[in-house]
Design a protein around this nucleic acid. Structure first.
Lengths: 238, 238
DNA sequence: TAGTGGTCTAGACCACCGA
DNA sequence: CGGTGGTCTAGACCACTAG
C-alpha cells in the first residue's frame, strides 16, 4: 500500500543492495534521514527496523546504523525465503510448470478436519501436483482444502494459480502460514516423480496457510528434491 | 530490557496461552487495553504486533483483534523455533550433554575467511562436537571461530557453553544469525556418530552468527538426525 | 454512522557510546 | 560532553467493516 514507512524502506533497501550505502559502513543518522524523507523519527525507525529484521542493517544505541556485511551464500540450490508464502511461484525467476498427478474429493479425516477447522467427514479436495522447471521435477506437492470455503477449484485453476484464484476470484486475502521443515527418507512416490534414488532424501515442508480472518484454508505437504532446495532465515534477537 | 511494550506483550501472551483469551475470540480493542495497561496506542500496537508475528493473534482494521486457532502440531520431533539463535541449548527442556570429537587450530581457507570476515590463513578454531540427550546422539556440530576475535576457548568452555563464555566472559553481545536449512544424504561421520543407516538422511543447518557490532563470529554446520528434529516458522505477509 | 485498527507526527526522556 | 538510537506519549487523520 502507500504507507510512507514502506516506501522509505524500499528506497533504503535499494541503496544497500546497490552499494550506494557500502557494506560495513555507517549510514546517516535518523535525524538526517528524517529530513531527507520528510518524516518523523518514529516513521523512520519503522522503516529501518524492517531492514534490521532482514539482516541488511544493524543498529547500536550511542553509535549509529551500519550496513551488514553481505556474505556470498552462493549455493546451487533454489533459496526459499522465510517470508514467501507460496512455495515456488515467487521465489524462482523462471516460470514453473505444474503437472496434476491426482485431483479428487475426500471426506476429511480427523487430523485434516482439525487442521482446517472443519468437521470430520466434511468434503475436501485432495490435490497432488508435480512442479517442474525446464521440465525437471522439483517438488511434489500434496494439498488439502475445504470445498465449502474454497469452492470452484478446477483443473484450469490448478494449472494457473490457486492463490490468484483465492485472492482475485474469491476475493479473500491470504495472510500468513505456519511451516514445519524436516528431512525425510524418500518414498516410492518421490522415486517415481522426483527421479530420486533410494538413498536420496527429500526436504519436506508441511504448511498450514491462513486467510486474514484467521481461518486456515490450506494444508499442504511439499516434498522437495534435497539437492535443489534450501531454506533461508535471518533471525534477530529481541 | 524493562520496556513497557515487552512486558505488555508477555502478559498478553500468557493470557492467550492460558486461554484467558479463548481461541478464535476477539480480544479487547486497543483503547481498552491502553487503559488497562496505562499506555499509548503506539505502545500497545507494538506489543500486539509481536503477537501477530508469532501467529498468536490476527488483526483486521474495522473489525478487531482475534486469537488465532492453535493447531496441535504434535510431532515427536524436537521443534526448533526460528527465533532460537543457539541450536539446542534453549529449545530443549532436558539438559543436553556434549562430547568433543575434534578441537584444533587451522589456517582459515578462503571460504571461511570470507564468511568470518578475516584474512585467508588467519588462525581459527575447528570444533566438532556431538550433542546428546539422555546419551542419545542428536546433532553433530562443526564450528569455526576466529581465535583473535574469540580468544581463550578451551575444552572446559566447550563443555559448558560457548555462548555464555562469549557474552559473560568476553562481554560481547550475540545479536543475530543467518541460517540455511537443507536435507542431505548422511555421510560416514553421520553414520558413526549419529548412528544413522546409509539410507537415513540428515537435516543440515548452516549458520553464520553475528555480534551486535555486525561482526560474524561463528560459522557452523549442524547435522541433525532427520527423525528427531524439525524447524518451525510462522510467516506473516506485510 | 460508530467502532475498529493503520499510520504519522512533534516532541520528550532516557541509555549508551566515544572523546 | 554531544551524538546516537530506544521508547513513549497524546493526539490526529484515515481506511475499513459493520449495522
Amino acid at each position: 500500500m502507500g504507507s510512507k514507512y514502506l516506501s522509505i524502506y524500499e528506497t533504503l533497501k535499494k541503496r544497500i543492495t546497490n552499494h550506494d550505502y557500502p557494506a560495513n559502513q555507517q549510514i546517516p543518522n535518523e535525524i538526517s534521514l528524517c529530513q531527507e524523507f520528510d518524516c518523523s523519527r518514529m516513521t523512520m525507525k519503522k522503516a529501518l527496523d524492517l531492514l534490521v529484521q532482514e539482516g541488511l542493517l544493524y543498529r547500536k544505541r550511542g553509535q549509529g546504523s551500519f550496513v551488514m556485511s553481505q556474505t556470498g551464500q552462493s549455493d546451487k540450490r533454489i533459496q526459499l525465503q522465510e517470508r514467501e508464502l507460496s512455495g515456488l511461484t515467487r521465489s524462482s525467476k523462471k516460470h514453473p510448470t505444474s503437472k496434476i498427478i491426482e485431483f479428487k474429493l475426500l471426506f476429511a479425516d480427523k487430523k485434516k478436519a482439525n487442521i482446517l477447522n472443519i468437521n470430520e467427514n466434511d468434503p475436501i479436495y485432495k490435490i497432488v501436483r508435480l512442479r517442474l522447471i525446464n521440465n525437471e521435477p522439483y517438488v511434489l506437492e500434496e494439498t488439502y482444502m475445504s470445498t465449502t470455503l474454497i469452492p470452484g477449484i478446477t483443473e484450469e485453476v490448478l494449472n494457473h494459480s490457486v492463490y490468484d484464484y483465492i485472492e482475485n476470484t474469491l476475493g479473500y486475502r491470504i495472510a500468513s502460514a505456519q511451516k514445519t521443515t524436516r528431512a525425510d527418507v524418500s518414498n516410492d512416490m518421490d522415486h517415481k516423480y522426483l527421479n530420486l534414488k533410494d538413498i536420496e532424501p527429500v526436504l519436506e515442508v508441511e504448511q498450514i496457510a491462513y486467510l486474514d480472518n484467521g481461518i486456515p484454508f490450506e494444508y499442504s505437504i511439499s516434498r522437495h528434491r534435497y539437492d535443489l532446495f534450501e531454506f533461508n532465515i535471518f533471525s534477530v534477537r529481541r
